[in-house]
Amino acid sequence: MVAILFFLLLSTNFLATNQQGQLNMSLGSSLTPIGNSFWLSPSGLYAFGFYQQGNGFSAGIFVAGIPQKTVVWTANRNNPPIQGNVTLLLTGGGRLVLQSADGQETSIVNTHEPVAKASMFDSGNFILYNSDQEIIWQSFRNPTNTIVLGQSLLAGEELFSSVSVTNQSTGIFRLKMQNDGNLVQYPKDTPDEAAYSYYSSFTDDRGENVSLNLDVDGYLYLVHSTGFIIKDLTPGGYSTEGTI
């Protein structure tokens, strides 16, 4: 099925479960491409930080528990690769930025209020909190080209393919969970109209608030907000040990 091309199937040495362990980063925490280059989730499965891209580095979330880092989320994905003399910093003022050697800053994410804490979860979700411990940003709600086990693609959200495995810049296709309940693939920069689609789940008559979900055994399906499954996309049933 065409839709599966947007997702990853990897061999690992970890138990693929929606674990809730988390690593917390406080204000002033920092990373550099050379040296302490990422924040690792407690199980060691996922990490947030720098990874090699081309002749430089990019920042994002990747599967760290295997020899080849496999990217599942990228910050500022269409920017040129970062050089080694930068710092990823959770500033005292509550911003997550890339800071160059001359002090210039580029935001990693935009939030409507200052960040008080960041957490990298074993689920693969990277979350920013305010001083009241409320979530103000999370990678699960701002996907790039991938959803991971336990993650949902909600109504109105979409994935954009990458140029290639080694180039995470935005590619030429998108997968959208439409507000009408239909999961549709389009070329990038086209209207959300049937004439431009090349895959559809044909579930536009099943109600609003439908989401795409991926379970730990590889079961991919569309479910209504009431909990009613409206369409199976894959059968699931894969081993949950050593596989994502």
Rank of each mutant, 00 (worst) to 15 (best):
P67Q: 07
V97F: 03
R77T: 02
K69Q: 15
G93I: 03
M25W: 05
L5F: 09
S43P: 05
S11L: 13
S11V: 13
T87A: 04
V86K: 01
L8G: 10
N24G: 03
A59V: 15
Q22L: 10
A64F: 02
N36L: 05
G21D: 07
T87M: 03
G65N: 04
N55R: 05
L5S: 14
S100V: 03
Q99P: 01
L15E: 12
L40Q: 15
M25V: 09
Q22V: 15
R95C: 05
R95W: 09
Q68K: 14
F50L: 05
T17Y: 06
G103L: 10
Q104Y: 10
Q19V: 00
F6W: 11
Q83W: 01
F62H: 02
Q22R: 14
W73R: 03
S37T: 10
N55W: 00
L10M: 12
F48D: 04
W73Q: 08
Y51P: 04
G93F: 06
I82D: 10
T12A: 04
L15T: 13
L9W: 08
L27W: 02
P81Q: 06
V86N: 08
D102T: 15
A75M: 05
N78L: 09
L9S: 14
F50R: 03
L45P: 00
G44M: 00
Q52I: 06
V97W: 07
N79G: 11
Q104E: 10
S26F: 14
N76R: 15
Q52H: 12
M25F: 01
T12H: 11
I66K: 11
L23E: 13
Q19G: 14
A64D: 07
R95Y: 11
N78W: 12
V86R: 00
A59N: 06
A101T: 14
G60N: 02
T12L: 08
N85F: 08
N79I: 00
P80H: 05
T12S: 14
S11M: 11
D102A: 12
Y46W: 15
F6Y: 14
L5Q: 15
V63P: 00
S11R: 15
E105M: 14
F57Y: 15
F7S: 07
T32N: 11
Q68T: 13
G65V: 06
G93V: 01
V63G: 06
F38L: 01
N85S: 14
Q104M: 11
S58L: 02
I34F: 01
T91K: 03
I34V: 15
A16I: 02
E105A: 05
G49Q: 11
G60K: 02
G103E: 10
F14E: 04
L23R: 13
I66M: 12
N24W: 07
G60V: 06
S30F: 12
V71F: 01
G92I: 00
N36T: 13
S29T: 12
P33G: 02
S100I: 07
G103H: 04
